[in-house]
Simulated assay, not measured.
Amino acid sequence: MTDVLIKRLSIASLSLLLVVLIAVLCIVWTMPDSNQPDSDSEICLQNDNNNVECGKTIDLLHAMFEKEIESAYAGAEKQEKIQTEKYIKDALQHDVHLMSDYKNTLWSMKPSAKLVGVREQIKHVQGNDSIATVTCWRHDKDLYYTTGFQRYGIRYQNGRLIVPVSGTYYIYSFLGLTERRLTDEGIPVEPKNMREIKHALHKYNVLDTVDMEIASNLQSRKNASRGYFNYYTSQIATLAKLRAGDEISVMLSDETLLENTGNNYFGLHLI
């Protein structure tokens, strides 16, 4: 009697297990397929609210990059203000009198830079067929003892000024250009290029991968009636809204005109 009861219980258990397995298989087969994000164009990141946010890779990374840059700049600016305030308090405790105008300028720490041209003559073999980036600038430590400067996060790389924070910037550039007219013996030099001279300011951002013209100046070539050289001057000044990471450069259609660059300058500052 006991063996029969055990056998019946075993059969009932196996039957119940079989029913459960069949139910699980039915649930799995009927589940809808979940949409997986495309790894080539989409990404999922955790936002400030600890929620996962999915979207286009470029857009999310761009937003995160700009947010981190702004946060780092704000933190640095806050630390600068704390240190400056401490310095003022310490100075006043030791009876050091600071002028109020000077004290007020300590709070204005906006990114700015002015590059000046190198004084040596630059011989450009190429560059008269298409517009090219002007790279003959003094920068960083080379600006010491000159009228140039780089302040509060502005970086220089390959002829470009890189802005650290988004905002509206005043951008300017001046070029003095020289073209040989006569040889030392007084023989006329045949011009190699009669195209118009274009001087421009360009903007580039690694997120856009597109080089964009901000402003430009176009002028015709001339032939002086006396002297050994033809001289040209070109100046550009404009306002532009820039993003953190934008790279600003000076472009010229004929680099052979950059024979004497000591008086050239190029800069920008946040307004």
Rank of each mutant, 00 (worst) to 15 (best):
T133I: 05
H97K: 15
E259W: 14
S253C: 10
I271T: 01
H94T: 06
L98Y: 00
I171A: 03
T168H: 05
N223H: 06
I171Y: 00
T147Y: 04
S225T: 12
G245N: 05
T30K: 02
Y144K: 15
K56F: 14
D208T: 15
G159P: 03
W29I: 02
N230W: 01
N35A: 03
W137Y: 11
L25V: 07
I131F: 00
D101E: 09
I122P: 03
P32D: 05
K67S: 10
L45E: 12
K198R: 10
R226S: 15
D254M: 02
D3H: 04
K241W: 13
I187G: 04
G176Q: 09
N264M: 05
Y231L: 12
Q83Y: 03
K114F: 04
E53K: 10
P32M: 05
Y87F: 15
K56P: 08
E77S: 15
V118N: 01
F174Q: 04
T57Q: 02
V125D: 07
M194N: 07
Q36P: 00
Q235C: 08
W29E: 06
L5A: 09
F65C: 08
L61A: 05
N51T: 01
F174W: 07
D59P: 03
D211R: 13
T256N: 06
K198Q: 08
L270Y: 10
T133R: 07
E85S: 14
R151V: 01
I43P: 02
S100I: 13
N263Q: 13
Y228I: 12
M212L: 12
A76K: 14
I122T: 07
D208R: 02
A91R: 13
M31G: 00
V134T: 07
M31I: 04
I236H: 03
G117C: 08
S166Y: 11
L161T: 10
R151H: 08
F174C: 03
V210M: 09
E70S: 14
I58H: 13
N104S: 11
L268C: 09
D246S: 05
S71G: 13
R119F: 11
W137E: 01
I58Q: 10
I131A: 00
T256D: 06
V250H: 00
A72Q: 14
I162Q: 06
A113P: 00
H202Y: 07
T168I: 14
P32T: 05
W137V: 01
L92I: 05
S108D: 10
V206Y: 15
A76L: 05
I122R: 07
Y228V: 13
E120D: 07
N47L: 09
N158A: 08
V118C: 03
E179W: 02
I131Y: 00
R195C: 11
D208W: 01
N128I: 04
S41F: 05
A132M: 05
N205R: 01
Y228R: 15
E66Y: 02
L61P: 02
A91W: 12
G148V: 12
L242I: 14
L92V: 03
A91D: 07
E213L: 04
I43N: 03
H269M: 12
V28G: 03
D38P: 08
K192M: 02
I171S: 02
